[in-house]
């Protein structure tokens, strides 16, 4: 029979088919578990599910290969020795890849960033944006200008990371200067009312509105507001403009810088219409 035909040594066609079947089944089990993980853990972050799925899938594939190879009379001891030597050579050649890979594993354990977080990595505007994907070797970010930035995981792991979304709420601050002749109490009330009216300016922690400084040209009112981290920029923009417009509607204005100059002697003004 064709199944009993020897291919090499004592390995027959049936051995080959059995080995292939074992590898195929292992890969199928791995894939099924990986797919179901996505379905079961819908609430888990995409990057975490993807990493776990990949680990499970490749573990099953490797186990399948390790079971199948002895059937094909492949000596694993020899392979391991050869593999060891290869590993040293490849290790030197791909040092940075391995560093990035290990950093990627630690990133997925520590999870300082998640997909859709707004982060700044290593400071600077260039690496500030929304995390699009955390792969095993690199992390990709979409900057606010829509630019794709790929950062090797080693850099992500070793640099300082500012995650603007890690906490659920975030505070921002304005300094609003008004004229000395304006009613500061009225200005405080107006600003307080506008913050109360804005749905996304959080009730708790409460906003702070107070006169912080009597400046050379203005009475400086400090306004501190908490907003949900996902919405803080929108709230910051909307409220600043509303405060400016509403204060002006109430004849409370932001003054220009003023300088009072005193002359020791009387001044004589010369010119055509001078008085």
């Amino acid at each position: 029979m064709i199944l009993d035909r020897e291919l090499y040594s004592t390995v027959t066609v049936s051995d080959l088919l059995l080995a292939l079947m074992i590898m195929l089944i292992a890969a199928m089990i791995g894939k099924t578990i990986a797919l179901n993980l996505k379905r079961i853990f819908k609430d888990m972050s995409k990057d975490r599910i993807a990493t776990i799925s990949k680990i499970i899938y490749y573990t099953f594939v490797i186990v399948g290969v390790l079971i199948a190879l002895p059937i094909l009379e492949v000596n694993l001891t020899g392979l391991l020795v050869a593999g060891g030597l290869m590993a040293i050579v490849i290790g030197f050649a791909s040092q940075s890849i391995v560093t990035n890979l290990i950093s990627g594993i630690f990133l997925s354990i520590e999870k300082p960033v998640k997909v859709e977080d707004v982060v700044s990595i290593g400071g600077g505007e260039g690496s500030m944006g929304m995390v699009e994907e955390i792969r095993i070797i690199s992390t990709t970010i979409r900057t606010f200008d829509g630019v794709y930035v790929r950062i090797p995981n080693e850099k992500v792991f070793t640099n300082s990371i500012t995650n603007f979304m890690e906490n659920v709420a975030r505070r921002f601050e304005y300094v609003v200067g008004i004229r000395y002749s304006d009613d500061a109490d009225k200005a405080l009330e107006i600003i307080k009312g506008l913050i109360e009216d804005h749905p996304l300016a959080l009730k708790e922690p409460p906003p702070q509105i107070f006169v912080q400084n009597l400046g050379s040209s203005s009475v400086d009112i400090t306004v501190r507001i908490w907003a949900p981290s996902t919405q803080w920029f929108r709230v910051r923009m909307e409220l600043l403009w509303k405060i400016k417009k509403t204060l002006e509607e109430n004849d409370i204005k932001v003054p220009f810088n003023q300088q009072e100059v005193w002359f020791l002697n009387d001044l004589e003004v010369q010119g055509k219409d001078a008085k």
């Binding site: 906490n167 659920v168 709420a169 749905p199 996304l200 959080l202 708790e204 922690p205």
Partner: peptide, 19 residues
């Protein structure tokens, strides 16, 4: 009705809530 949000709990572990 006018909507408003608040934070229940602290900033790092709390929950944003409709108020």
């Amino acid at each position: 009705k006018k909507p408003k949000y608040t934070l229940y709990g602290d900033v790092s572990t709390g929950t944003i809530c409709k108020y």
